[in-house]
Design a protein around this nucleic acid. Structure first.
Lengths: 229, 229
DNA sequence: GATCGCAGAATATGATCAAATTGCGCGAAG
DNA sequence: CTTCGCGCAATTTGATCATATTCTGCGATC
């Protein structure tokens, strides 16, 4: 009768392997700017912090490095990437090629609950913006896009887009610190309106503006920062 | 005087770490179709084959998984991905968004030796095609594109494109086995002619054709193969 | 100012534990 | 009597850790 002894009742949720848990934790830290651009990341530091062995941490760092969320420094150190103007331009090009297309597909394929989910997330986002809650802004902003892209049903494109988010996450956190949450671009209402009307092209155009404005602000902070790093 | 005892004479080349060597070996196997779509990859198998410990192999597999060149199978096994029509369509879209742009940039920024290098690689490619040498075809075809993209000086876009190559490498090998090397698309001469004339748009257009024709053939093999896997 | 040495961190191994698949044997049905 | 199916156990493989080794970078000394 009883298959295993994970829990006496309730659904059996196999807890994920340690390397997966570490990767997710590391991903959040990169994505939501809890690590600053240029900051060094050490294996033993992460292992102590996340209460894990060195091997799973090592694996998580390799994945994140392949994702572009961390970079090898030539010697054996890894750190959070520091973007230059060219990097931002490349990311902008790629995002403008991918994310409007994902938006288009999501709009055309949208299922029943999607619009509600997006509205809820956007409401939480507005609350975070009003409160000047930077971590909240970063999380709900990402969640909005993530939810939308998942609805497109295009795993490879979505993965590719998510990887780009890892690259500019730490820099976006710096942008928030500089500009505050009030002055950040938010074309989400336009996107939601287009989704309601099932106007895929309008949604894609609004997404292009959202992406372009966000990347432009990252660029401004880089230029302002003086050093090309 | 002597920094270390790697070699009594000659340039001191710090040999790469084991996990890097393993990753490169794994990458070649995926990229050049030495592993078939669906084939299982085991940690201990690779470790034995490449004469390495489990930890470096593990790291290499994580990187390759993040690259899309291998996939988790839900249980803890990993295998070479099997593409369906939707996957190929996504890869086609992304390649058509990225690779012509890289071609454009490479054409405009082309330095002195580039055209010679590309001609040499293309000549080797033609030799491989004439001889029906499938591994040679796959290697020189990839090298042609790789050389071209490196000249664009766009690291993020190049990395993104290279990741896509890892996804369709094994399937491309199957295409070669089915169609032979003679009937594969080769728009390289058009690209080279456009480079000579420094006509970036013509080069980009030729690249779009090269990419589209290649992916179309992959699609045909998938459809022919019967099962959607 | 250059060199040697030390501390800290990363690399890599092998052992150990846990999980999953495979295959075998037993029993029941035809 | 043969065959199909189910369940248990053995083997294979993955996950994690503790530890030894190597390398890098910095600081003290000559």
């Amino acid at each position: 009768m009883v298959m295993n002894e994970k829990a006496a009742s309730g659904p059996v949720v196999a807890d994920p392997p340690v390397h997966e848990r570490v990767y997710q934790a590391l991903r959040e830290r990169v994505l939501y700017g809890e690590l600053r651009p240029g900051q060094a990341v050490t294996i033993q530091g992460l292992a102590a912090e996340l209460d894990a062995g060195m091997t799973p941490v090592r694996e998580a760092i390799r994945r994140m490095t392949s994702d572009g969320g961390l970079v090898f420094q030539g010697n054996r150190r890894v750190s959070v990437p520091v973007l230059d103007r060219g990097d931002v331009a490349e990311i902008l090009f790629l995002r403008c090629a991918i994310e409007p297309e994902l938006t288009r597909r999501a709009c055309m394929a949208q299922g029943p609950g999607l619009l509600d989910d997006l509205h809820r997330t956007d409401a939480a986002l507005d609350t975070a913006i009003a409160a000047g809650d930077i971590p909240g802004y970063l999380r709900y902003n990402h969640l909005f896009h993530e939810t939308l892209y998942a609805a497109a049903g295009a795993v490879i494109m979505t993965e590719t887009a998510e990887r780009l988010w890892l690259r500019f996450g730490p820099s976006l956190r710096v942008v928030c610190g500089r500009f505050g949450t009030q002055n950040l671009p938010d074309r989400h209402r336009e996107i939601l309106a287009a989704f309601s009307a099932r106007d895929a092209e309008a949604a894609a155009a609004a997404m292009t503006r959202d992406v372009t404005e966000g990347m432009t602000q990252v660029l401004e902070v880089i230029d302002e920062g003086g050093a090309p790093g």
